[in-house]
């Protein structure tokens, strides 16, 4: 797949000149390399693959996607369901 798991950045530090962080996956923590996500700050969520953060998870996009799913259902209930409803966030 590329098994990528969301985790929360707890503490950022430098190890041998590389930006590293402790990332919390929900009760377990792991040291993760932040070299590829200079924008990530403590408190951000990131996707971790093979010990590397590969992106900052965008909360606004996530909420927008979920809102879009919920709206699909509301349209359905109102009897306005349309197979051509365009997708939300892209």
């Amino acid at each position: 797949m590329c098994l990528g798991v969301p985790g929360k950045v707890l503490e950022v530090r430098s190890e041998q000149g590389t930006r590293m962080a402790t990332v919390d996956f929900g009760g377990v923590t792991k040291t993760v390399c932040l070299a590829y996500v200079p924008e990530v700050q403590e408190g951000d969520y990131t996707i971790v693959h093979a010990g590397f953060a590969i992106t900052r998870l965008d909360e606004a996009s996530a909420l927008e996607t979920l809102r879009m799913f919920t709206e699909l259902g509301m349209l359905d209930e109102l009897g306005e369901a349309d197979a051509g409803v365009p997708g939300g966030a892209t």
């Binding site: 992106t55 965008d58 996607t65 892209t90």
Partner: peptide, 8 residues
């Protein structure tokens, strides 16, 4: 199309 905008 991007159905994974929170990460892509």
């Amino acid at each position: 199309e991007n159905a994974y905008p929170r990460a892509v």
